[in-house]
Amino acid sequence: MKVDFFNDVIVKGTKNGLNVTWMLAKVIIPVYFIVTFLDATPVIGWIARGMEPIMSLAGLPGQASIPLVVGNLIGLYAGIGAIKAISFTTREITIMAVMLSFSHALPLETAVTQKIGVKGLPVILTRIGLAVVSGIAVNLLL
């Protein structure tokens, strides 16, 4: 089969890339706005102080609970929007990236795995479990 490099690869790939970019812009921009505004209120400070003891197990500041919650409820890109809206060190970003890559977009992706026929609860528990264990492990190793 002959491949039309320009149309099949360059044009189609760029189109897909732009589609994905648009899709993630629709998620990142609102999350970024909300987190930036929340950051100016005492709310994030309260959440951060409350979560500090738990987050410190993974070597993270209390504010890190925000991208983790947003990422798990909405999706990876929303979590990234929240990470960028608050400033973190690269070490903290790596730890959050590992945790989020195991466990993200739980409502959406659990629905997908249920379609394959696997029950939701074991999937969610496995993912959150992996995120917690990996967060603690990477903190110790890095």
Partner: peptide, 27 residues
């Protein structure tokens, strides 16, 4: 202003990665 420029920068950072990946995947 901060939200607008910050989120635009984030989207740009990611677009710079995602678009070439999609081209590679089509290849």
């Amino acid at each position: 202003y901060k939200s607008f420029t910050g989120s635009a920068k984030s989207v740009y950072t990611i677009a710079r990665v995602v678009i070439p990946i999609m081209v590679l995947m089509e290849a």
